[in-house]
């Protein structure tokens, strides 16, 4: 249950970005969340509702989540495969000498600001 802590980090970073861009109100925050980042999207949006509504800048704002599929590459045969399906063992050559290419992201992609 680290989603609340992550939400506090998002709020801190978004507030800083809002100040830099002289933004008074944010309607949505878009996140890139990797499939194997250990963040549960439903918990993140629940925590967001609770915490964001306490901030005038973010009251009522939506947290949009972009899931990034996890991809692993094999260092022995060079091929890529789906991490969640095959784990650390390459399905092409059976090697365990593999590394995660993407899918570990917990990243603020962008913020949406209402035009008025």
């Amino acid at each position: 249950m680290h989603e609340l802590g992550i939400v506090f980090y998002i709020i801190r970073d978004v507030k800083a970005a809002a100040a830099e861009n002289s933004v008074q109100r944010i309607s949505a925050v878009v996140m890139n969340i990797g499939e194997v980042s250990t963040v549960v999207p439903e918990y993140l949006t629940d925590c967001w509702r609770w915490a964001a509504d306490k901030e005038p800048l973010l009251k009522g704002s939506e947290l949009k989540i972009n899931m990034i599929p996890a991809v692993t590459q094999c260092q022995d045969c060079g091929q890529e495969y789906e991490t969640v399906k095959y784990g650390k063992t390459c399905p092409h050559c059976g090697s365990g000498n593999t590394f995660l290419l993407k899918g570990n992201e917990v990243e603020i992609k962008e913020i949406e600001v209402p035009n008025n």
Binding site: Y9, I10, D13, V14, V106, E107, K109, E112, V113, N115
Partner: peptide
Amino acid sequence: MDKVRVIEIKKSVFAENE
């Protein structure tokens, strides 16, 4: 005109802690 303006952030949530 679009209803919203998008500001790109592209920043890892863990970057500042690191």
